[in-house]
Design a protein around this nucleic acid. Structure first.
Length: 432
RNA sequence: GGUGGGGUUCCCGAGUGGUCAAAGGGAACAGACUGUAAAUCUGUCGGCGACGCCUUCGGAGGUUCAAAUCCUCCCCCCACCA
């Protein structure tokens, strides 16, 4: 089966250039293909999963993924992004971020040997000289055409406008593609749908400079059925770095998926076979919820490993009392299905914790202050409201009065379990 | 550089001297209903041990008993012109 078919079937492809040629090209044997990643942060987030997964699929089909970190372009800023211009990064920052990215990408892609490459475009972009660049590269670009590109058009018509440094972004990205074509014989670039213009510019440049055909594939913008861009929560992005978003929170993010998105997301964010994904539409009620558990488990397993996924699953089970997933639902998934041994039902996974000493609790602390202190409420006032509205629980019992004192008597098994609303937990661990 | 229009609480957006912690909507949070879903209904939505006090309306000053609202200077954004 051609990768293209896999990608199509799983919902990765919005459009491609030269449909038939591309298919033939991909079936001729191993082909390098690249996607650019932004090194402005030391961690990737869920929004980058589509590109990551598509590279992983490429690799599984015998092609060579190239993750290109934009150490150079990061200094310029892609205008198809947000209003603010990007922060200039120092070399050390970029290098540090590159390490972080590689670590995360390695979960999905095998970088051993030459099976996949991680490159930094700063290696060539920072060496560019202005006049030669204008003469050799710039002359191939028509401003008339660029202005019509969707990514610029939006900005040109918007209030913020577009400044010159950002206008150049397209040339730099096209140059990247040319460079990778030269160095690594890379002829395929993939990217988000907002990258279409930039990708096509690279293809044109390669044709003009090297008389070679290059190809492009774009991904659809993944939004949730409620219309929000993927990966956004009130608290901000959902990161792949376990230090920023714990596996438990990561798991919770997925389990809160909208019903309408389950099948689509399992196809995109797990490797479970499509025959099983297609069964999802037959599920209803609690079974549908089990499918969500499978999505959460498999996605967590990919990003954080099997152990972390099992832990997150167990935490969720003990907190929410989730039912077992029956064997008929996603038989290929390795989600735990038996009540097996069921080690101490107190395994709370890695829900957020904080430490308190016996001394701190001896005097007691008003409930609303406690909720505020551990971060379950943004302010004392918010904590009071939470309690007054009946949304605060300690060890499973509703807190009735906002300033009721919490002290030694509330300790159960050397811990106090706080809950805000239905889903947010926090465990206080008593030290010595 | 010139002219005109703007900067309001997480976002959009009313408010043009007191009745303004500031309408309305969205987001968010809690409750009910549920399946840790959606939809719906209800409540909350600057801070504070709280029917009171404190701090907010681009920044700094000023007028006034009283300023988001008036005046001065400054910063930033947008449109048109150069």
């Amino acid at each position: 089966m051609n990768v293209l078919d896999t990608l199509f079937e799983r919902g990765f492809i919005e459009k491609t250039t030269h449909d038939e040629d591309l298919r033939r090209f991909l079936s001729k044997g191993s082909a390098p293909c690249y996607i650019g990643f932004d090194p402005t942060a030391s961690s990737l987030h869920i929004g980058s999963l589509v590109p990551i997964m598509s590279l992983a699929h490429m690799q599984r089909h015998g092609h060579q993924p190239i993750a290109l970190v934009g150490g150079g372009t990061g200094l310029v800023g892609d205008p198809s992004g947000k209003t603010e211009m990007r922060q200039l990064l120092t070399e050390e920052e970029v290098n540090k971020n590159v390490l972080g990215l590689k670590k995360q990408l390695s979960r999905f892609i095998n970088f051993s040997g030459d099976k996949a490459l991680l490159l930094n475009n700063a290696d060539w972009l920072t060496k560019i000289e202005y006049i030669p660049f204008l003469r050799d590269i710039g002359r191939h670009f028509s401003v008339n055409r660029m202005v019509k590109a969707e990514s610029y058009k939006v900005r040109l018509e918007s209030e913020e406008g577009l400044n010159f440094i950002e206008f150049n972004y397209m040339l730099l990205q096209a140059y990247d593609f040319l460079e990778l074509c030269k160095q690594n014989n890379c002829r395929i670039q993939m990217g988000g749908s907002d990258q279409w213009g930039n990708i096509v510019a690279g293809i044109d440049l390669i044709r003009r400079v090297r008389q070679q055909t290059a190809y492009g594939i774009t991904f659809p913008l993944i939004t949730t059925s409620s219309g929000v861009k993927m990966g956004k929560t009130a608290k901000g992005a959902v990161w792949l770095d376990p230090e920023r978003t714990s596996p438990y929170e990561y798991y919770q993010y997925w389990i809160n998926t909208d019903d309408r998105d389950i099948a689509r997301f399992i196809a995109l964010f797990t490797f479970l076979p499509m025959e099983e994904v297609n069964e999802v539409e037959k599920l209803t009620g609690a079974d549908l919820n089990s499918a969500k558990g499978v999505l959460a488990f498999e996605a967590t397993k990919l990003a954080h490993g099997n152990d972390a996924a099992v832990k997150a699953y167990q935490g969720a089970k003990s907190m929410f009392g989730t039912r077992m997933v029956s064997k008929e639902i996603f038989p290929s998934s390795t989600i735990p299905r038996e009540l097996e041994t069921d080690t101490s039902d107190k395994s709370t996974g890695d829900i957020p914790c904080s430490d308190f000493t016996v001394a701190q609790l001896k005097e007691g602390i008003p409930a609303f202050k406690l909720f505020n202190r551990v971060g379950l409420s943004k302010s004392g006032g918010a904590a009071r409201r939470l309690i007054e509205q009946g949304g605060a629980y300690i060890n499973g019992r509703r807190v009735e009065v906002f300033d009721c004192m919490i002290n030694m008597n509330d300790i159960e098994d050397m811990a106090i379990l706080l809950r805000a609303g239905k889903k947010r937990y926090h465990k206080i661990v008593i030290k010595k």
